[in-house]
């Protein structure tokens, strides 16, 4: 996408496998993309496409012992995170990289008051006194728009609504003013009016703090409205990536086109039939040859040998070079 030297985060041919009852499954299969400083990149795809595993690999929070990174690099400010030791990773997570997960309840400790949990981040990453940490936690809750923050500091997570909890999780992730935020489906569990509030808040804080963001979602609309660039994943691979303005206006890969068309919109005619992508999301395997999307579309395995390479169609717009998927055959 960009010159790697200008990018804050460069994921280069990342491969992550899971050791399961069915053998090794490649959840992330040579994924490459980069997040420029100050930019916002959306990762989209359906369940099981590897978007969350990519995020967990970057911050090295894969489920253990099943998940293993077996190849590639994750360059963050010139440092390969895959080779960093555990102490260094603990410094980076919550310090230079903030992480926001989908379900706010699971990111918060139900037994501790909100104030203690937010203050803890400052105690861990900054060398400051307990009182200062408490004051900074209070300032952080104010920043994310929690009403009556002094009162909320003394409450437990279950006493807050879903939207308020997600604000606390955002406060935790942004507490140390990280240069990169990884948000994995941050609004999926929320109602649409609350989602709009949270996305608005994140955009405001991002520009105030000059942060980069990697936003993982299944909602193409959320990407279109919040990201500069988009990476479309299918079955562990990147099938298309590039500037949002270009990909949403002129999607090239059959999968991207199918996803965009199959969504009902407010403009579509009531009770009309939607264009569909037949079949279901591919299951993962160890070494899968050929084009994964052609497999879903029922092309015989014997016809599929080489994995299609990513090619650059226009500057920054990359797509998997499968003649069937690009030619509109599906």
């Amino acid at each position: 996408m960009n010159d790697p030297k200008q990018s804050l985060l460069v994921v280069d041919k990342l491969i992550t496998s899971f050791d399961t009852d069915r053998g090794f499954l490649r959840a992330v299969d040579q994924v490459s993309f980069s997040v420029p400083a100050g930019g916002t990149v959306g990762i989209v795809g359906e369940s099981g496409c590897g978007k969350s595993v990519t995020a967990m690999s970057i911050v090295r929070l894969l489920p253990q012992p099943a998940g293993k990174i077996i190849g590639g690099h994750v360059w963050f400010k010139g440092e390969d995170l895959l080779r960093a030791d555990d102490d260094r990773m603990r410094k980076i997570r919550g310090g230079e990289i903030g992480v926001i997960f989908q379900e706010p309840m699971s990111a918060l400790n139900p037994l501790h008051r909100i104030g203690r949990q937010v203050a803890e981040v400052f105690l861990l990453h900054r060398n400051i006194s307990k009182n200062d940490a408490w004051d900074q936690a209070l300032a952080m809750l104010k920043l994310v728009g929690i009403p009556a923050p002094e009162k909320r500091m003394m409450e437990y997570p279950h006493q807050l609504s879903g939207g308020m909890r997600q604000r606390v999780v955002i406060a935790l992730a942004l507490a140390c003013r990280p240069s990169l935020v990884i948000a994995d489906e941050p609004t999926t569990a929320l109602d649409v009016t609350v989602q709009a509030q949270i996305l608005d808040l994140m955009a405001r804080l991002r520009s105030e703090m000059n942060m980069s963001m990697m936003l993982i979602t299944h909602d193409l609309g959320v990407v279109a409205e919040n990201c500069d660039e988009v990476v479309v994943m299918y079955a562990g691979r990147v099938v298309e990536k590039g500037p949002v303005s270009e990909i949403f206006a002129k999607p090239l890969h059959a999968y991207t086109r199918g996803l965009l068309r199959s969504m009902p919109t407010l403009e579509s005619k009531p009770k009309s039939l939607l264009p569909v992508i037949p079949g279901m999301v591919a299951s993962l395997g160890e070494h899968v040859h050929g084009c994964r999307f052609c497999q879903r579309m029922g092309i015989a395995a014997s016809e599929l040998r080489e994995r299609p390479a990513l090619i650059e169609i226009t500057p920054g717009h990359w797509v998997e070079n499968c003649p069937r998927c690009l030619g509109g055959e599906h």
């Binding site: 609504s161 939207g163 308020m164 109602d191 649409v192 009016t193 609350v194 989602q195 709009a196 509030q197 996305l199 608005d200 909602d219 193409l220 609309g221 959320v222 279109a224 409205e225 919040n226 949002v244 303005s245 949403f248 206006a249 965009l260 969504m263 919109t265 407010l266």
Partner: peptide, 25 residues
């Protein structure tokens, strides 16, 4: 109106005014 305006659109050229609601139900 608020519900409609909160739906994210995939049309990058769509320009709609977002009505941001305060608070929750």
């Amino acid at each position: 109106k608020a519900l409609l305006s909160a739906i994210p659109s995939t049309d990058p050229n769509a320009s709609r005014e977002r009505i941001l609601l305060e608070g929750e139900i």
